[in-house]
Amino acid sequence: MQKFVHGLAAIAALSVAGAAHAQSSSTPFDGPSVGVQGGWEQTNVRNPTTDLGIAPIKRHHDTGVVGGFVGYDKQVVPGVVLGAQAEVNLPIDSSFSRNGVQIDPKRSIDLSARAGYLVTPATLLYVRGGYANERVGTRIAANGVTLSGSESRDGWLVGGGVERMITDKVSARLEYRYTDLSNGDGKFDRHQVLAGIAYRF
Rank of each mutant, 00 (worst) to 15 (best):
T27H: 09
S26D: 15
D51P: 05
P48D: 04
T49V: 15
P48M: 02
N47A: 12
E41C: 05
Q23I: 10
V45L: 02
T50I: 07
Q37A: 09
H21N: 13
I54F: 10
G35L: 04
S24M: 11
R59M: 04
P32R: 02
A22G: 08
N44P: 00
F29W: 07
Q23E: 15
R46S: 14
A20C: 08
P28G: 01
I54Q: 12
S26C: 04
Q23M: 11
R46I: 03
G31P: 03
P28D: 02
G35N: 05
L52G: 09
D51S: 13
A22P: 03
S24W: 05
H60E: 09
S24I: 08
G39T: 08
T27W: 05
A20D: 14
T43D: 02
N47D: 14
S25Y: 07
N47Q: 10
E41Q: 14
E41D: 08
S26H: 15
P56Q: 07
N47C: 06
V36P: 01
P28N: 01
Q37I: 03
T50W: 09
P56G: 07
S33L: 11
F29S: 03
S24Q: 14
S25I: 08
G31W: 08
S25Q: 14
N47K: 06
V34G: 07
G38H: 03
P56E: 07
R59T: 03
F29K: 05
W40P: 00
D30N: 15
T50P: 04
V34C: 06
V36E: 01
S24F: 09
D51T: 13
R46H: 12
H21S: 13
N47L: 07
Q23V: 14
A20N: 13
S25N: 13
G39H: 10
T49K: 12
D30M: 00
R46E: 09
P56A: 06
W40R: 00
Q37P: 00
V45C: 02
G31N: 04
S24V: 12
G38K: 02
E41P: 03
W40S: 01
D51G: 15
G31V: 05
H60W: 07
P32F: 15
Q42A: 01
A55N: 10
G39W: 10
W40M: 01
K58L: 00
T49S: 14
I54S: 12
H60K: 12
I54A: 12
K58F: 01
S25G: 03
L52F: 08
I57W: 08
R59V: 01
T50A: 06
Q23D: 14
S33A: 12
V34T: 09
S33Y: 15
E41N: 09
P32L: 13
N44T: 08
F29I: 04
H21F: 10
T43P: 00
S24T: 11
Q42P: 00
S33R: 15
I57M: 05
T43W: 02
I57P: 06
K58P: 00
P56W: 08
G38E: 02
V45I: 02
T27A: 13
V36C: 01
P32A: 14
G31E: 05
D30F: 02
P32E: 01
S24C: 01
L52C: 09
R46Y: 11
V34R: 05
I57K: 06
P32T: 06
S25M: 14
E41H: 02
A20V: 12
G38Y: 02
T43V: 09
P28I: 01
P56V: 08
